[in-house]
Design a protein around this nucleic acid. Structure first.
Length: 726
DNA sequence: GAGCACTGC
């Protein structure tokens, strides 16, 4: 097992053998803040060295180096654009922390950030990315040199994988965890494990970069231990308090004027449309960013805006725009002469193809105003230039774990004050901006200060599996930045036990549980794939697992076109088998990108599914498991799906709606499913999402036979029956 | 008969 893991280390490879970053296309649009400010400096005619010295963080260079030498852990509080991500690893490198072949690591929550920051730092250091001192490591894309790389940018997930292969992170002298305030599950897990590693590696230094709000909690997490004996770079051992906090000088940001509603509004989509139209008529040029919760709202808002603009054009022809002057507003009015006349409305959400997403980054034609209708995607993942106005609906769609039902669902929930501030900040990047919050100040005051850490909101089966696989036996007692709810842990343990990943004493089973922990899949998908080996259809299950691991492949704005595309591949067994068909057809197609676009499929997403499938196949062969083909015996593939997804079984009721077999929750088949028009009596679903009317719909469903549940998951269903009887 | 937040391995 240990040998397997060492072999699976993602971080040291054959130099230069990897293809160029596939995600370069969006780099321009998604450019990291520091990169954007560097670009501005290039325009100002500054050399790279001059630019480095001008960054706010430079003033604290010596202090940072002193603290890292002195304290095991340093929490760095710094705002975006201050230069911490690009500069601090270079300072550490220059100060000797990479001597003797050691590495400085800097982790990011997102792939694009890791890649684009590494590219920027390589440029500053005059190094060839991946071949010299700077490299990066993200899934499917590693550019680093085993001998020469000294500064390595990676994602939190990649660092987790590295810890599985090398639990003491023996090649690293310093690990900087960036954007720790986002408190993603993998970030928290990294922090918890790093704290543990540090107890056995007195020379390991940690830097935790966080926004102000979470810094204190993180410092408390790392500071909650007695003084530690630390070995300094001079070799001397000293007793030190475990953590220091350093606040960096904030980067200059433009002020944002934030407005709230006087009275609550009943329909924030309509209110957002009204706000955009008012801004457009009354405010000077500048683009608008509207935050909504999902594709449906974005489509509705787009239709309303388009109609309103058509009406306005007609009105303007009739009375010269007098109507617009009657609209109320909380903002000062500007001379209409300065206002742009045309309104360019662009959607931005995960369901769009890469090209459609890129359209939102294009500057509008001269004289026109751009309105981007976006999901939460625009809050942290991407940065749009030229935004001066932000409209914030105050809600977000997020994953919520329901301990009663034992499953999670996507639901619309109020955002936090920190998120509202982050959204508002998007207006102040180019110049002074305005943010309209579509709720009252009283509502704002009642929002929670910060979004709950993900470990408190999501299903914990993955986290528990990862903890057990790194040797943490008492999961409930494990020291985390925020402890996960006990009830959620209990659900995860029960589910993992029913999946066969745990012994009745709560240890990882061998080899099933160990293999599940190692596969880069959610536990249910991992159980499905490994169950498929038993059923003799792992070849097909690899397709299903890969397709359910990537974003939706059905793209295109019109629902009709999507329906037609799906109908082309649909099979009565359901979405899982349909998706497998799509992937196999894509692989066989001669000109795959063209083949995909002609059928309304996203070739980039399918290409990624091909990579995932290949990676999963390598895991199976490393486990020594065969990937057999079941051909026409599709029952075996559906049985495999049940082996993983039995906790998600549902039965159709008289009225046509469904009830979850476990928990009894009322569910509908999502209209996107190929089984929407042919609902089977029994099925298992992949995920649940809340519809706009509040109903909960199952996304990606598979028709099953009811006796498979008791046959393949007796621990989950028969124990239950016995309890009911007792 | 009505339409899937975002990451990550």
């Amino acid at each position: 097992m240990a040998a397997d893991r060492a072999a699976s280390s993602h971080l040291f490879w054959r130099p230069g053998a990897d293809p160029p970053p596939a995600s370069a296309a969006l780099d321009r649009g998604r450019a990291n803040d520091e990169r954007a400010s560097a670009v501005r400096n290039v325009h100002a005619g500054l050399s790279l060295t001059q630019q480095r010295v001008r960054l706010p963080v430079f003033a604290d260079r010596r202090r940072i180096l002193y603290l890292v030498e002195t304290f095991p852990t340093v929490v760095i509080v710094g705002h975006t654009g201050c230069g911490k991500t690009t500069q601090i690893p270079q300072y550490l490198h220059e100060a000797g922390w990479t001597a003797g072949g050691r590495l400085v690591a800097c982790t990011q929550p997102r792939r694009v950030a890791a890649i684009s920051v590494a590219a920027r730092v390589a440029e500053e250091m005059g190094a060839e990315l991946g071949a010299g001192a700077v490299g990066y490591a993200v899934r499917f894309d590693v550019r680093a040199d085993a001998e020469r790389t000294r500064i390595l940018y990676l994602t939190h997930g990649t660092l987790m994988r590295e810890m599985l292969a090398d639990p003491l992170l023996s090649r690293f002298s310093v690990v900087m965890v960036d954007e720790a305030h986002e408190r993603g599950a993998s970030t928290d897990l990294c922090l918890a494990l790093l704290k543990k590693v540090q107890r056995r590696r007195k020379d390991l230094r940690l830097l935790i970069a966080s926004a102000t709000l979470e810094a204190e909690a993180l410092a408390r997490f790392f500071g909650g231990t007695a003084p530690m004996r630390m070995r300094g770079p001079d070799g001397a051992v000293r007793l030190q308090p475990p953590v220091a906090v350093l606040t960096l000088v904030a980067a200059r940001a433009h002020p944002v004027h934030r407005c709230f509603l006087a009275r609550p509004c009943a329909d924030y989509v309509a209110e957002a449309v009204r706000a955009v139209l008012e801004l457009h008529v009354q405010q000077p040029p500048g683009d608008v960013l509207v935050f909504l919760t999902g594709q449906a709202e974005i489509d509705a808002a787009r239709a309303l805006l388009t109609d309103a603009m058509a009406d306005a054009m007609a009105d303007a022809m009739a009375d010269g725009g007098a109507d617009a002057k009657r609209r109320r507003t909380s903002l000062a009015r500007h001379e209409p002469a300065a206002r742009p006349t045309e309104l360019l409305v662009l959607p931005l959400h995960g369901g769009l193809s890469r090209d459609e997403q890129l359209a939102a980054f294009e500057p509008p034609a001269p004289g026109a105003r751009k309105v981007v209708l976006a999901t939460n995607m625009a809050e942290t993942s991407i940065t749009l230039d030229g935004i001066v106005y932000v409209v914030d609906c105050g809600f977000v769609k997020q994953q919520i774990f329901d301990a009663q039902a034992g499953t999670e669902a996507l639901v619309v929930a109020p955002i936090s004050r920190a998120a509202a501030k982050q959204r508002a900040g998007r207006a102040g990047r180019t110049r002074a901006g305005v943010c309209l919050h579509l709720y009252t100040q009283r509502t704002h005051a009642a929002m929670r200060a910060a979004t709950a850490p993900e470990v408190q909101r999501c299903s914990l089966d993955n986290l528990v599996l990862q903890l057990l696989s790194v040797g943490i036996r008492n999961v409930a007692q494990f020291d985390m930045p925020t402890p996960p709810p006990a009830a959620h842990l209990a659900c995860a343990l029960e589910k993992l036990y029913a999946l066969g990943a745990l012994t009745d004493r709560g240890a990882l089973t061998s080899p099933l549980g160990e293999r599940m922990a190692e596969l880069p899949l959610t536990p249910l998908l991992a159980a499905m794939l490994l169950g498929a080996v038993e059923e003799g259809c792992a070849r097909e299950a690899l397709c299903v697992a890969a397709m359910l691991s990537v974003q939706t492949v059905w793209v295109g704005c019109s629902h009709k076109a999507q329906d037609a595309a799906r109908a082309h591949f649909a099979v009565y067994e359901g979405d899982h088998l349909t998706l497998a068909n799509v992937l196999r057809a894509f692989t066989r197609a001669r000109d795959a990108p063209r083949w995909a676009s002609r059928r309304g499929l996203d070739a980039r997403v399918l290409q990624r599914a091909v990579l995932v499938r290949a990676q999963l196949a390598r895991f199976l062969s490393r486990f020594g498991l065969p990937a057999e083909n079941c051909g026409r015996e599709t029952d075996r593939l559906r049985r495999s799906v049940v082996r993983g997804f039995f906790p998600h079984a549902a039965q159709r009721q008289v009225g046509g709606e469904y009830r979850a077999v476990r928990g009894g929750r009322r569910l509908l088949i999502h209209p996107r499913s190929v089984l929407f028009r042919a609902p089977p009596e029994w099925l298992v679903y992949h995920e649940v999402s809340q519809l706009t009317n509040g109903d909960e719909a199952m996304i990606d469903v598979c028709k099953i036979e009811p006796h498979w549940l008791t046959e393949l998951a007796p621990l989950f269903y028969e124990v239950r029956t016995a309890q009911r009887g007792a």
